[in-house]
Design a protein around this nucleic acid. Structure first.
Length: 496
RNA sequence: GCUCCGGUGGUGUAGCCCGGCCAAUCAUACGGGACUCUCGAUCCCGUGACCCGGGUUCAAAUCCCGGCCGGAGCACCA
């Protein structure tokens, strides 16, 4: 009895592999956050952040915060629409946020804290140029501004706010240790002047905090207990800890993961995508050739498949380079049972069937094992896919699926009727192709998953009723019918 | 260059903290077969990995040292 129970448990454990436990995590007390810069819509990469954080929070009955780290209106300028895209895509991915925070709307709060640090002489205004400071940093020497008194510092700070300094003239640095063995940690910038309107808050501020500062304060304010983020931010922690020490706060538990590279997309940053869209290389943020969540939604992927795929990547610190085939496999498991099957004839070739005794109506299974059928007319003239026609050899026997068996006459570009029945020869060679009569056809274009890749041809009219759904075009691929009318069908390539 | 981090089959992952039950998990990919009037699905079967070299130990994927390879950071970007 005991043994069998143990076996059962083991089996379940194997099926539902969970994320590794978080250190020091108490049920009901975990607070995590996902902090993107909305300079574009969420991609698979950002979705990983959402999904894994969400999964942990669900695991521990905790809370998840969405925080927009949008404190640079110039270099990584936020995109106004993207704020909502994050919320929409998260919802679609079944990621639940307990609250949403916009850093750019909370700048005065960060001012209060830096003032505190200036008073404590743990921060100082620095008038060095970047180049000058780099020299000090590399040499491990303190810059002359470092021993500014609190009084002077506060005075400079007020002048910064009131606009007496130009952009680039002065920054506020956090005192760390100019002899720290890692130069990246030495006195880092917490505030700088940026004369540029912000998409969300306009011209309200010109003194902006850096990510490191804003994030440090905000994590504490929101009571974040655990942080999971990319390893590119690993030094952030070491920098931010100084502030935590000065204020006597406790730093959250952190975990970092490596970069994800998808074979099919290569390395594509949000800003690169943006440029390519502007240049017209992509049609928009939801171009099916793009790794954005919006594109995957458009292609008809299931959120559950994306979640599983992302979770299967684990939370290790090494970089992963993975193929989308894994995602396809997950998604296929979900859609295969539900997708209706239809014929889609691409690069259509029109051919006559010589000697067809009569035109008939044929029944073809719509869904495997469901007993549902669709009806097509078998007429004297049919369309075949160009690929198939090219492949055929003269005199070859071919089965028009569920219709009739024919012999190919390449020279005269016709098919000779052989029989209604399937022949063994055809069966062995698996020479079964899809086809379409004129009266059942509707113009169809399928937008591919590579830039500018498209297939044109005819789809069967039966597919018209599946607008919005994912179907399988037999012997082609799964596709989502995005638009359907008597004029034609536009479908988006999902995956094979 | 400096500072960190990592290296398990083609790919991703579990195991590593607390050495033995690990001739190493799961998924995907690939190969073969069965079934099917789709190049899909399903069902069988199979292929295939602990970076290298030392050390500790009765015993190492797991601990220690060295090497090699890969990655990240060193911005008034996030």
């Amino acid at each position: 009895m005991v043994t069998s129970l143990a076996i059962e448990e083991k089996k379940e454990e194997k099926k539902e592999r969970k994320l590794p436990e978080l250190p020091n995590a108490e049920k009901g007390k975990v607070v995590m956050r996902f902090a993107p810069n909305p300079n574009g819509p969420p991609t698979l990469g950002s979705a990983r952040g959402m999904v894994v954080n969400d999964e942990y929070v669900k695991m521990y009955d905790g809370q998840l915060i969405l925080r927009f780290d949008d404190t640079d209106p110039r270099t990584k300028r936020p995109l106004l629409e993207a704020y909502d895209w994050y919320i929409e895509d998260a919802e679609w991915l079944n990621v639940k946020f307990d609250r949403v925070i916009y850093a750019s709307k909370r700048i005065p709060i960060y001012y209060d804290y830096i003032k505190e640090l200036l008073k404590m002489e743990k921060a100082y205004p620095c008038f060095c140029s970047r180049e000058e400071f780099k020299k000090y940093r590399d040499a491990g020497i303190e810059c002359p501004h470092r021993n500014t008194t609190a009084e002077e510092a506060l005075e400079v700070w007020e002048k910064m706010l009131s606009g007496e300094y130009k952009e680039g003239e002065v920054v506020i640095r956090i005192k760390t240790d100019m002899k720290h063995k890692d130069p990246a940690i030495r006195d880092w910038v917490a505030f700088r002047i940026i004369d540029c309107d912000h998409p969300l808050v306009g011209n309200e501020y010109r003194v902006y905090p850096t990510l490191d500062f804003e994030s440090a304060i905000e994590d504490h304010l929101q009571g974040v207990t655990h942080i999971i983020r990319g390893k590119d931010l690993i030094d952030s922690e070491r920098r931010q800890k100084y502030i935590y020490d000065y204020f006597g706060w406790e730093y959250p538990v952190t975990k970092h993961w490596g970069r994800v590279k998808i074979h099919e997309f290569g390395k594509l940053s949000t800003s690169e995508i943006r440029k390519k869209i502007e240049k017209g290389e992509y049609e928009g943020w939801d171009d099916p050739a793009l790794p954005t969540i919006r594109a995957f939604r458009r292609r008809g992927f299931r959120a559950e498949a994306i979640r599983k795929f992302l979770l299967s990547l684990g939370v290790g610190e090494n970089d992963v380079s993975v193929s989308l085939k894994n995602l396809y496999a997950e998604n296929r498991k979900l859609i295969d049972k539900e997708a209706n099957r239809y014929f889609f004839v691409w690069d259509a070739v029109e051919v006559k069937i010589d000697g067809l005794p009569e035109e008939v109506t044929v029944k073809i299974p719509t869904k495997p094992e469901s007993g549902e059928f669709r009806v097509l007319r078998g007429e004297k003239t049919v369309f075949l896919s160009g690929d198939d026609w090219e492949r055929f050899k003269d005199g070859e026997l071919v089965r028009l699926k569920d219709f009739c068996t024919v012999k190919v006459d390449k020279e005269n570009r016709v098919l000779e009727f052989v029989s209604w029945e399937m022949s063994n020869e055809v069966k062995k060679g698996k020479n079964i192709v899809h086809w379409l009569s004129w009266s059942d056809s509707v113009v169809c274009v399928v937008i591919g998953d590579k830039p500018r890749l498209k297939w044109g041809g005819f789809a069967e009219k039966n597919a018209l009723k599946d607008a919005g759904k994912v179907v399988q075009f037999e012997r082609f691929a799964f596709c989502r019918i995005e638009f359907a009318s008597d004029e034609g069908i536009r479908a988006i390539y999902t995956h094979p």
